[in-house]
Design a binder for these strands. Sequence first.
DNA 1: TTTTTAATTGAACATCGTTTAATTGTATGG
DNA 2: CCATACAATTAAACGATGTTCAATTAAAAA
Lengths: 200, 200
Amino acid sequence: MGRRSDHTPDELHDLLVSRGHEVMAERGFAKFSAREAARRAGYSVGTIYNVFGGLDGYLIAINSHTFRKWSACLQSALADETGDGDARIAALVRAYFAFADSNRNAWMAIYDHRIDRTNAVAKADETAREELTGIVDAEVTRWLGQPEDASTRRLVRSLIATVHGHCALWLTGSYALLQEEDPAGQALARVMEALAAQRS
Amino acid sequence: MGRRSDHTPDELHDLLVSRGHEVMAERGFAKFSAREAARRAGYSVGTIYNVFGGLDGYLIAINSHTFRKWSACLQSALADETGDGDARIAALVRAYFAFADSNRNAWMAIYDHRIDRTNAVAKADETAREELTGIVDAEVTRWLGQPEDASTRRLVRSLIATVHGHCALWLTGSYALLQEEDPAGQALARVMEALAAQRS
DNA sequence: TTTTTAATTGAACATCGTTTAATTGTATGG
DNA sequence: CCATACAATTAAACGATGTTCAATTAAAAA
């Protein structure tokens, strides 16, 4: 079969990402199948290699989609938050966990996929991933009440790593947090301690 | 071929774990092959299913082996440390990162493998994994200078998650810590802030 | 209408995990 | 010492995967 008019290139791209995201959410990274995703989209595997250049590119696109959904969640949580500085940080951390919890497989897939940086990541995907850092950046800068500088950015990354560690160990069921009933609360406590230490 | 006298059951178990660990270190979790490990041990795949009951059991055994090596590293680093309280915590965190760094694939495999808890984990493997928490537990208790209680244990798990987050994002090359040249230092800073906050 | 272009496929290949019947070394009992 | 029972080990088979590529064919260009 040759060129079809079922979908424009953009539509096809989005359709494949959508179905891929669906399969990822259902099965998780370990049991993900590009063939199955293509099947659900009504195409064959080869099309994925045409559109995304390979499995890696496809997985990057799928995970970037998750990133965009995640960012939107965080933005929305912040928009709904009416409280002061501390409350905004709390809302951010809670929303971080809430998204991961209700999108377990897709969220974990982000970190399960090891990107080979020899293959350049598409610009759109790069920015999708940077956006999340930007959100935290803005919020931490706001809390600290001083203009963003290099040390702020460094702190932000460390805080993200802190929250990530709690969330990852929680969702993977690593027993380190097995008996912890509020991992988000613990993560938030560590974040607030770190923020307080910067101010003094 | 039937029963062979090449190795005792224990020897065979250890041989397979050793070769499996070797393959894991070389290829990483995503490209791990039980067939290849068996090949290197001079056996066929089926033997792995006999000895470990299945691929999951095999991976658990391999990762538990990594855990034991890791614990030994931390113990040794603490034994070599002659300094005071803060220095011991620093040595612990640095050793944590050092092991992960020089055993990247094997270390990441620990968290790449999602354990299905319906299949009971062997007792020996369970304790191999608990030992690491125990080491941190003892060290944090020592630093705090008060008997270990429930809240200490809770804090310990949170601190492990904090360090884990930094280490994981660093080794996976995640964007958040891409430009950070001393992730261990950042993790340590967060840990010390958290510890200090407990004392006040 | 004809020609060119490029999207899409199907088939082929190597590999993987998993299961199972068939082997064949080892131990046991007479 | 031989025959039998046992259990470790394997080979082969199965379905599924990722990956590549020549062949096909629909759409665009001429």
